[in-house]
Amino acid sequence: MFAPRTTPWPLVALFTAGYLAPYLLPTTVGRLDSDLPLSATQAGAVGSALLLSSAAAGFVLASRVERIGARTLARLGLALALLGYGGAALSTAIPAVVAGAIVGGFGSGTATTVAATLIAGQRDPHRASTAGLLTVSALAGAVYLTVPHLGPGHGLPLAAIALTALAVWPLTGRLPVGTPVAPARHDKARLPHARSGLLLAAAMVCWSLAQNSLWGVSGRIGLEQAHLGEATVGVVFAVALGAGLTGVLAAGALGARLGRAIPIGGGTVLIAVCIALSASATDLGSFAAGEIAWNTLYPVVLSYLIGLAASLDPRGRWAVLVGSASSLGTAAGPLTGSVLSAQAGFPEIGAPEQPVVEIPVETSAVPAQRAYDKAGSEVF
């Protein structure tokens, strides 16, 4: 397959194609709100439907990558992403946009499932996952810098995701076709470390919900509360994602030297502070500081979580299932954030007594990682 000490770039590209939609969530939801006859809550619901569809793909396909074949599933996912996001980008009919977002979300989830499964089987899954985070952060940053200068319209960020899927398609030829697994043998291969996996999955739902409830409305915070222009908000997001590259590089350099308890637990607490700062921002300085610090820390913690999930099962099933559980929290984020911001205002979303309080649950997953001597990458 891939040389053990080289970066598996086809997997990195597939990871990027699957993860780009969540990274572009603020501009996608914001433009649905401004370009189509949708309320902020309705636009958030569309974003949630997209991510929920992506999570469903992970739950459905987690144990089927080997039987169906990585190449086949990857191409199916990319095709669905191209057709779904592309169709939504070209249409102004709300039912078509919603349907396209759901189809595209399932495609993104399928691509992520294949990438997660194969990355978990790598000799160094942390290397592959950090490379994927670097690539998707850089691409999303470029989109945030470019889209505001291309004009209004909800279709631009959706088109960017669709074109990424198209660009990655040729690289799927290097993915394994898969070898059929005998049904009896396959069914007896139970998931190892069930308690740790379930605990990590439950924690990830809370972790993702807490963060994405604000991430999904970050664009609106910049526009409405901090009184910034779309181009300025785009620059802040691009710089923030660029800072995230630094965080990923730092995580890759540190590796397992600090264990996982400190990066995951300590990083999550610091993220909570950043969320509160961003939610209460009223000017460029506070908004940029919160977003940049937040996006610097987020991929660091995420890279360790991905590696933790990948190390639970070399066949990658926990990496996919935990990632899909995370996507459930992510999926509820845009709608939750939109509803809370409409009812209580942006600062209350980032207040410590709001969903962020569930962060300690995340740290409770840390002892499990030590018990099983996990090696890490990232939780999808």
Score class of each variant (00 low, 15 high):
S54N: 12
L51V: 05
L76P: 03
R64V: 05
V46S: 05
V65H: 03
S54I: 08
A45G: 13
I68Y: 08
S63M: 15
R71L: 12
S63R: 15
A57S: 15
R67G: 13
R67D: 13
L82K: 06
R67Q: 13
G84S: 10
A55Y: 01
V65D: 02
L80G: 03
L76D: 05
L78F: 06
A81Y: 11
S54Y: 09
G47P: 06
A45K: 06
R71Q: 13
V60L: 15
A55L: 05
V65G: 04
L73P: 00
A57W: 00
L83T: 10
L61D: 00
A55S: 14
R64S: 14
G77N: 04
A57P: 01
A81M: 15
L51Q: 05
L51I: 08
G58H: 01
G84V: 07
G47T: 06
R71T: 06
V60P: 01
G86H: 03
S53R: 03
R71D: 09
A55K: 00
A62Y: 01
S54F: 10
A56F: 12
A62Q: 00
S54K: 05
A70Y: 01
L80K: 04
L80D: 03
R75T: 11
S54C: 13
G44V: 02
S54L: 15
A57T: 02
A62K: 00
R71A: 12
A70C: 10
S48R: 07
L76A: 15
A49V: 02
S53K: 04
L82Y: 06
G58D: 01
L61F: 08
L76G: 08
A45S: 14
I68Q: 05
L52I: 11
G44Y: 01
R75W: 05
A70N: 03
S53P: 09
G58M: 04
S53H: 06
S54R: 05
R75H: 08
I68C: 09
R64F: 10
G77S: 09
S63L: 15
V65T: 08
L50G: 05
R67V: 12
E66T: 07
G77T: 04
A57Q: 01
L78W: 02
S48P: 10
Y85N: 10
F59E: 00
G86E: 02
R75P: 10
G69C: 09
G84A: 10
V60A: 15
G47A: 12
A79T: 13
F59C: 02
L82M: 14
R71W: 10
V65Y: 03
A57Y: 00
